[in-house]
Simulated scan of single mutants.
Amino acid sequence: MDHRNDSSPSVAVLADDLTSAADGAAPFRRTGHRARILLRDDASERDESAAGVTALDLAGRLLDVAEAAARTRRAARTHAGSDLLLKTVDSTLRGHIAAEIRAAYEGSGRRAALIAPAFPAEGRTTVRGVQRVRGVPVHASEFGRDPVHPAHCSDLAELLPEAVLVDAGRADELPAAIDKGGLIVCSAVTDGDLDRIVDAVDAVDDVLWIGSPGLAAALAARYARPEAMPVPELVPATRPLVVVGSANPATRRQLGNLRAELGSAGVTVATGDPGASVAELSAADARILTLRTPDERHTTATANTLTRHLAEVTRTLVAAGTVDALVLTGGETAAHVLGQLDVAGIELTDEPEPGVARGVLLGSRNIPVLIKAGGFGDDDLLLRLCALAAGAGRSQGEG
Rank of each mutant, 00 (worst) to 15 (best):
R74Q: 15
I37Q: 01
D42H: 10
A35R: 09
H96Q: 08
D57R: 11
Y105F: 14
D47Y: 13
T54M: 15
R73V: 08
R46H: 14
L38A: 04
A43Y: 14
L85E: 04
A113K: 00
A66T: 11
A55L: 09
D90P: 00
A104H: 08
R34L: 15
L93G: 05
V53T: 03
P120S: 01
L38E: 02
G60K: 07
R36G: 08
G95F: 05
D42L: 07
E100P: 02
S91T: 00
R61I: 06
L84R: 14
R46T: 05
L85M: 10
I97R: 07
P117C: 13
A66V: 09
T88S: 04
R111Q: 13
A118Y: 13
A69E: 12
R73C: 14
L56F: 11
H79G: 12
R71L: 06
D90H: 10
A113E: 03
Y105K: 04
E45Y: 15
A118E: 05
E45K: 13
G81Y: 11
S82P: 04
H79K: 13
L58D: 03
R102K: 11
A59W: 12
G109T: 05
A104C: 07
A68M: 09
A70N: 08
D41T: 01
A66H: 14
G95E: 04
T88M: 06
A104S: 08
H33F: 09
R29G: 08
R40G: 06
R34V: 12
A50I: 12
R61Y: 10
A75D: 08
A118S: 13
L56Y: 09
L63A: 13
A55F: 10
R74V: 11
A99N: 02
A112V: 03
H79T: 10
D42Q: 10
S49K: 15
G95P: 02
S44P: 02
A80L: 06
D64L: 11
A50C: 13
R40T: 07
A70F: 09
K87F: 04
R110P: 01
R71D: 00
I37F: 06
A99I: 02
A113T: 03
S82F: 11
I115G: 02
A70D: 12
E100V: 02
D47C: 08
L38I: 07
H33M: 03
D64V: 07
G60Y: 09
S108F: 06
E106V: 03
G60S: 10
L93I: 01
A51E: 14
R29Q: 11
H96P: 02
G95M: 01
E106T: 09
P120Y: 04
S108Y: 05
G52C: 05
D90L: 06
R74D: 14
I37R: 05
G52D: 05
L84F: 15
E100R: 11
T72V: 00
